[in-house]
Design a protein around this nucleic acid. Structure first.
Lengths: 229, 229
DNA sequence: CACAGGTCACGAAGGTCA
DNA sequence: TGACCTTCGTGACCTGTG
């Protein structure tokens, strides 16, 4: 049962962030994410789209840039790809690095709302809950019977904790994307440091931005910046 | 809760060092170490990685050598394996001698901080989880009671408020070992020297301070070419 | 008790096809 | 286009061994 939301826009695994349960959505379109792909939290569609077309050059369909949502996802490829790249999706060095664009709070809020609505409609959610109730009752059946007889006892269920982890696999290709200019620039400094530092460059800084949000539509976004070595 | 970390970068066991208990970190990636593997203080992941792939030949993923951290651990296998080997990991019989790379006190400090934060987060999360369970049970108590009543066809006492048990997971208690400050201080100099010696010059300098030692004459650590990028 | 090595579930990548 | 599939590396867990 999802009762607690930890949302991260970083590529760091939940484990590394000390988060044990993560509700994730695609940061491109807002759909449910299926994991980290090309360094970014994304859904299956966006994963596939980026895999196919990260090299392509598209022309914008409209004069104004599109705002990518689940609905207009396939409308303008140029804007979709642009968003992918801007948010940090890359075949390049994307290993557990933070996305270079933090979640837009407005977008975040909107997504939260959408999700809330979606979840209300979601039969699966209810089913899970029912199952949990059923399981709980089943487990405690004996206890209740005893209680009825005895007025004693009590047992507690434990929530299962979902662990989410991610790996990044090696890809040889190097893709230069315009949206990555900043990202590359940022890394350049690190590379230089690496070259100059003693072993493994202990001065390397990695920033992790973490966005946590709480239950019941109540969104509290905090950003934490952890510095690793 | 871990409040203090005893760290050793040697291959000597805690017993041999006169330390009762040691909190150690993997010298490859900085994760928590689970012991000495293949002659080197390492975490489970790096242990597994070296076991699987010590014979493999990898191509670097990027033009510049990677800096191996917990986060990019799986990104570039070549650099990971290279670091393993450079630091002295070997399938050959290893001796109880110091690893050839001293601990960086700064890195150490940061890792300690990270661990502490991670553990605090975890404790917090567990507390929240318990609270949620409690709340869930409280909310559903009536449901369960009704369910039980239905099953039993009888009345149930309503006043029994069942308390939530806290089963605290075993928390690792770590033993403090004094003399660590000295140890770190000691290494600090060494480390700084090393860092300074590398700085500014050609990065392909080989250090000759190889620590080689052999036990019963049958050890030959593979020439750890200390090539630091 | 600590380490070596085997096993396996899991997640990411890339291919295929309706 | 996106769902589905296969492949493979990863790391947690387990067992064997000295």
């Amino acid at each position: 049962m999802l009762s607690f939301y930890n949302v991260t826009n970083t590529v760091a695994s939940s484990k590394q962030l000390g988060i044990r349960r993560v509700v994730r959505y695609c940061l491109i379109c807002g759909d449910k994410s299926i994991g980290f792909h090309y360094g970014f939290l994304s859904c299956g569609s966006c994963k596939g789209f980026f895999r196919r077309s990260h090299d392509n050059v598209y022309q914008r369909k409209y004069k104004t840039p599109c705002i990518i949502t689940m609905e207009n996802l396939t409308d303008c490829k140029a804007c979709r790809l642009k968003k992918c790249k801007e948010l940090g999706m890359s075949k390049q060095r994307h290993s557990l690095k933070p996305a270079n664009v933090p979640i837009d709070p407005i977008q975040q809020e909107k997504l939260e709302f959408e999700w809330e609505v979606a979840e209300q409609d979601e039969a699966e959610f209810e089913k899970e809950e029912e199952e949990r109730d059923a399981a709980y009752i089943a487990v405690n059946e004996q206890v209740f019977e005893n209680a009825a007889a005895d007025q004693n006892g009590g047992d507690l269920p434990k929530n299962e904790a979902e662990e989410v982890e991610n790996d990044n696999e090696g890809v040889e290709e190097e893709v230069v994307c315009e949206g990555d200019a900043e990202y590359i620039e940022e890394n350049k400094k690190e590379f230089d440091e690496a070259a100059n530092s003693q072993y493994g460059g202990d001065s390397l800084k990695t920033e992790v931005e973490e966005v946590k949000s709480d239950e019941e539509g109540e969104v509290s976004i905090d950003e934490a910046e952890n510095i690793f070595f």
